[in-house]
Design a protein around this nucleic acid. Structure first.
Length: 783
DNA sequence: CAGTGAGCGAGCTTCCGCTTGACTT
């Protein structure tokens, strides 16, 4: 009997749906898009209404053939891709590529993978919405034009193999501009005053903070002196109690899951997605690439049941969350456990941790508000209008806090945020000040972005999609526009004035501030590319460019705008700027900076992005005089930047390679290579370790390094065989191994390397060769 | 593994958004 064929996007989804549908249906997966613009060229016929040239990629050909065969065998084909722009386009591409006949093809959509939702979808089929498809084509074509016209401009003006695009270039811009804000930032000092009071009972302490900051040291001292006066009595003037409510965070979307997993579990964005993918494939959670807050009725009911069973009815509160945008295209649910009766699962360690986070967040979002009581105590100072204020908070009913509390990015810096129960006090109580401390505090610079923080900001700007956040972050790092790294903090002095026992003492303390770990930092290349793009293409690199074009895509989807006309308008605006930029003088590279003149040669010194990265240059090539001296080059060190390097620092670079001295009648030379500074001696390379510098290393230091390396080298060779000179047993970083004909072979765990015979070695090599040949997959950055 | 760079010349690089593979280190 002929079955109906249902095509969805994801194989895991296909498996689930097949169970709901029974034997009359066969469910297959398209694994996302099945066709795309040809990658060899622009792939768009600009002159003929931007006609896209779609091709089935090589790796998808087999799948498309299978789908086609299955569709021809089927009674009816039901295209069940997601109900959004991309999903509609997938359905359309399927109908085109599989040559489906319209009378045997239907389009169905569901927003959650539950049996009622799927059965309802089968009852309400529709045709393909060509307006929505056209909106996707517009999006696709625009992204291709932007990416494939901007990138070659960068190859010409900055460096080969760079890339630019609607999404990645704005992501880089966010990081470059944040770094500039940080560089410009000037912190402002003020004094924060905290007092420790003794209550009338003579033993209970109450800590309170002055209700304003004092502007400098003199004002702080004057205030403490005023507190010192006998008439400066401290009296409880007022106490108020106020109920406060806390509401749980909404359920997880891709971006909030990435942020919380980074804060609570220390996961990178890519790691979170990988672990979530495994949870999804094992059936533990719903789809992990979503921007919807929606929860299915089934999930709401199950949450209610789980909460009332575990904590009681009082802890439950039904909440519906709505996605902020127009909401019409809720292709998925929020990320939630598929089974709310399973608080824990058994899986890998990371999977269990992430699941726990998802479970608790989902449960909490269906729980009652937490009820707190905030007590504010205000303490008057005799003769002054200033007051000390103590704030305490008590949880009256924990509600959702019982299971989950959202983290924030702000590091807990000031203890004022810590809230607690205050002792009971009465208005009119006289207090004794044990000590009053005025501490100098500084305003904080803007924070550097973490990966997840960047995703958060991109989502706010509407740039990128749940499926692209992680790959985009990978791309801007692969292009070396941005690196994840650490920045040492700076030591800062601050002043502390303490009034205790009638004395004012002053102390200067030191603290380290602004240290950063694992943050996104712009590189020179990223900075130069960004400055070049913002200068030449300000509209495209604008933070609101995506939001603006999205409005047009919406109009196309609603049928009020022709997609080809939208493209025509954009292209007529954009392409001339590309042409103009390419035609501009080519002798000056973007980001090039003149530093001054080399005192020795009188030649100009400049820095720029060279073919292999940031480089300093003395002299200019002279096209009219081939015999003239060629320019000299020297790569910048990792710690230097073309934006900040000085003439002196640049000239310093040309001192390398440098002859350190002689040893055993041969020259020792210091230089910096791809892997950092090194000493070269008699064909041997020795890295120069940290505190030593290639510009200043002494002959004795270099000899010590060479001897150390020689000792290690002698320990490296464990055994050689006269019959087979190309085969050696060596000692490596991961233990002993066999080196033979350019390949390395691991040794079995239980052997003693020095005891191996040549036969043993040959056997190990032969066994390794039996295994499937190892391919070296050249991992491409993105897509 | 440790270099490189200024012109006759060859050809390549690149976008964003859907979705998982089958490879090891």
């Amino acid at each position: 009997m002929q079955k109906n064929l249902v095509i969805v996007e994801s194989p895991a989804k296909a498996k689930t749906i097949e169970k709901f549908l029974g034997k009359d249906y066969r469910v297959m997966s398209s694994y996302g898009h099945i066709r795309d613009l040809s990658t060899k060229e622009l792939g768009i016929d600009v002159a003929h209404d931007f006609k896209p040239q779609y091709v089935v990629p090589e790796e998808k050909k087999k799948l498309v053939a299978e789908l086609k065969k299955a569709s021809q065998d089927a009674r009816e084909v039901l295209l069940a891709s997601d109900e959004d722009r991309e999903g509609e386009a997938i359905a359309w591409h399927l109908s085109e590529a599989l040559e489906l006949s319209p009378d045997r093809t239907q389009r169905i959509v569901f927003h959650e993978i539950t049996k009622p939702a799927i059965l309802h979808a089968l009852d309400t089929p529709r045709g393909i919405d060509i307006n929505l498809v056209n909106a996707q084509q517009a999006r696709r074509v625009l992204d291709r034009i932007v990416g494939f016209e901007l990138s070659p401009v960068l190859w010409r003006k900055v460096k080969p193999a760079l890339s630019a695009g609607r999404v990645q270039s704005v992501a880089v811009r966010l990081i470059v501009e944040r770094e500039r804000e940080i560089a410009r930032f000037v912190s402002e000092a003020s004094f924060r005053v905290v007092a420790s009071f003794l209550l009338p009972d003579g033993k209970t302490l109450l800590k309170a903070e002055l209700n304003r900051r004092l502007k400098d040291r003199d004002e702080a001292e004057a205030f403490l002196r005023a507190c010192q006066r006998p008439e400066a009595a401290f009296t409880i003037e007022d106490t108020t109690k106020r109920p406060v409510k806390k509401t749980p965070a909404p359920p997880f979307t891709t971006s909030t899951l990435q942020q919380e997993a980074a804060r609570k579990l220390g996961f990178s964005v890519a790691q979170t997605m990988m672990v979530a993918q495994r949870l999804y494939e094992s059936g533990f959670i719903t789809y992990m690439r979503t921007d919807s807050f929606n929860l299915s009725d089934m999930a709401l009911t199950a949450s209610r049941q789980a909460i009332t069973e575990e904590y009681g009815e009082r802890y439950h509160r039904l909440r519906h969350y709505h996605t902020k945008s127009k909401g019409a295209q809720e292709a998925h649910e929020a990320i939630r456990p598929t089974n709310m009766q399973a608080p824990t699962i058994s899986a890998g360690a990371q999977e269990m941790k992430l699941y726990d986070l998802i479970y608790k967040r989902t449960l909490a979002c269906q729980m009652a508000d937490a009820e707190l009581e905030r007590t504010t105590v205000s303490i008057g100072i005799g003769g002054l209008t200033d007051k000390f204020v103590a704030v305490g908070e008590v949880i009256k009913f924990d509600g959702f806090l019982r299971v989950y509390r959202e983290s924030t990015d702000d590091e807990p810096d000031t203890p004022e945020q810590e809230t607690k129960l205050l002792p009971t006090v009465n208005v009119g109580d006289r207090l004794t000040a044990r000590e009053i401390i005025a501490t100098e505090r500084f305003t904080q610079r803007p924070p550097r972005y973490t990966e997840a923080g960047l995703v958060h900001r991109m989502e706010e700007l509407g740039i990128g999609r749940p499926s692209t956040y992680a790959p985009t972050i990978q791309t801007i790092q692969n292009r070396e526009y941005v690196v994840r790294g650490d920045k040492p903090g700076e030591e800062r002095k601050f002043c502390v004035l303490t009034l205790a026992d009638g004395q004012i003492a002053e102390e200067v303390k030191r603290e380290t501030v602004g240290a950063d770990r694992n943050k996104l930092l712009p590189t020179d290349v990223g900075t130069v590319v960004n400055d070049f793009l913002t200068e030449s293409f300000p509209e495209v690199i604008d933070y609101h460019f995506t939001a603006n074009v999205e409005k047009e895509f919406d109009a196309i989807a609603e049928g009020t705008m022709e997609w080809t006309e939208a493209m025509d308008r954009f292209y007529k605006f954009f392409h001339p700027i590309v042409e103009k930029t390419l035609a501009m003088r080519t002798d000056h590279r973007a980001g090039e900076r003149q530093l001054g003149t080399d005192p020795k040669s009188g030649q100009p010194v400049s820095v720029k992005i060279g073919r292999y990265g940031p480089v300093a240059q003395i002299g200019q090539p002279d096209p009219d005089n081939k015999s003239a001296a060629k320019p000299r080059f020297a790569s910048l060190m990792k710690t230097q930047s073309i934006e900040t390097i000085t003439l002196e620092e640049a000239l310093e670079l040309f001192k390398l390679p440098r002859v350190i001295g002689e040893y055993e009648g041969k020259e020792m030379v210091a230089a910096t290579g791809r892997f950092g500074p090194f000493v070269r001696f008699d064909g041997l390379f020795v890295s120069i370790p940290k505190p030593l510098e290639p510009t200043s290393i002494t002959p004795d230091e270099a000899i010590a390094l060479i001897e150390e390396k020689r000792t290690k080298e002698s320990q490296r060779h464990i055994k050689t065989f006269a019959e087979e000179p190309g085969l050696e047993i060596l000692n490596g970083r991961y233990g002993a191994y066999i080196a033979f004909e350019g390949s390395n072979y691991r040794l079995p765990k239980d052997v003693v390397p020095a005891d191996l015979t040549l036969e043993d070695c040959r056997r190990i090599i032969a066994e390794a060769a039996d295994k499937p040949k190892r391919r070296v997959p050249r991992r491409r950055s993105n897509g």
